[in-house]
Design a binder for these strands. Structure first.
Lengths: 180, 180
DNA sequence: ACCGTTGTGAACATGAGTGTTCCGCAGCGA
DNA sequence: TCGCTGCGGAACACTCATGTTCACAACGGT
């Protein structure tokens, strides 16, 4: 009982938080934030790069799960569920997009393509259901979904947007744009 | 005449290219790409951070100019001009967004807010002209503009989108969303 | 021809993060 | 009580980009 909470948050979760707040944080900072020694951190993740990749993989797992769960039978409803699911994943997306060392990991890029595949196929079905404007390719719909979800989360993080309004605004903008 | 092209591209331009391609590129790589010695690079930009800030400032200059020139009297037309102007700035936006060391420079953040001010005011006018959906705040319109422009440029960079189609798709998505 | 400017390569010093080793300590089950 | 295990802390060596100094070469103006 010396430790207040026994691994309430996993090391990877804390590492993700720290590295999103400061992408150049040293391993000492990560270890300190996790309440463990730097040596222990090295034992689990031999290299800084190993740690970064592990965080990235976990992030992709979370993303994958969220996407899989959100996609259902009804295209329209699923779209709304997707937005709801993706907005809170902002920090993970930020980590994946902003951590420079990840560019050197082809496996991660491949993995992301893998995650995007069901999403793109889903958008194809949405298009076939006549719910997409002509000229909007499935991949573009996916990219727009990411963009609007991430932007909404950013708005929340900057205090410009109420958390409860974020997903709604994102969904409205995705489907109807900003104009009328 | 020893040098083929006398500063055809400025050092900052080349640095921007190299650092977008590889955010962790060393100064030696930047100097080599610019065709100058590392020592010379150090004379102009004493520190790596100085160089990064200089590239960022130049990027903000470019962004500022593009925004200022695009904003005209007619709100609708200006919106289209804005998208046209922002899409090609993708690499500069990527640099500003992905270079981690820039987070530690409050002046740059302040400068960006400065650049965004006329943009936000413009979106306010667009809203007053009745061109924005209710519930779309000016700052959200600005964020969406950035997001869609950057996403379109990314599509071009990945070879998914024809350069000539990018701005049109971005504008259409911004104003009308992906749905119908 | 002289001199200031500018760039260059080589060499060096530095510092920070990283990765490793080693030893002590606490917990825990047998 | 005895091991076993995992963790922590201290210390170490190492790597690498960085920043600095210096002497030399090319250039241009006077």
């Amino acid at each position: 009982m010396s430790v207040p909470q026994r691994t309430a948050k996993s090391i990877l979760e804390i590492a993700a938080e720290v590295l999103v707040r400061d992408a150049t944080a040293s391993l000492a900072q990560v270890a300190a934030a996790a309440g463990i020694g730097r040596t222990t951190l090295h034992k689990r993740y031999p290299t800084r790069q190993h740690l970064l990749v592990a965080v990235a993989e976990e992030s992709l797992d979370i993303l994958d799960r969220a996407v899989t769960e959100a996609i259902g039978d009804d295209p329209g409803e699923s779209l709304r569920d997707l937005v709801d699911a993706l907005v809170p994943l902002g920090p993970r997306l930020e980590f994946l997009l902003r951590q420079p060392s990840l560019d050197a990991e082809p496996e991660l890029q491949a993995r992301w393509v893998q995650v995007d595949r069901p999403l793109t196929e889903f958008m194809g079905r949405v298009a076939e259901a006549g719910l997409l404007r002509p000229g909007v390719a499935p991949w573009w719909a996916v990219s727009s979904l990411y963009a609007v979800a991430y932007t909404a989360w950013e708005g929340v993080a900057l205090g410009k947007l109420a958390p409860l309004d974020a997903a709604g605004l994102a969904y409205g903008t995705l489907m109807g744009g900003i104009g009328r």
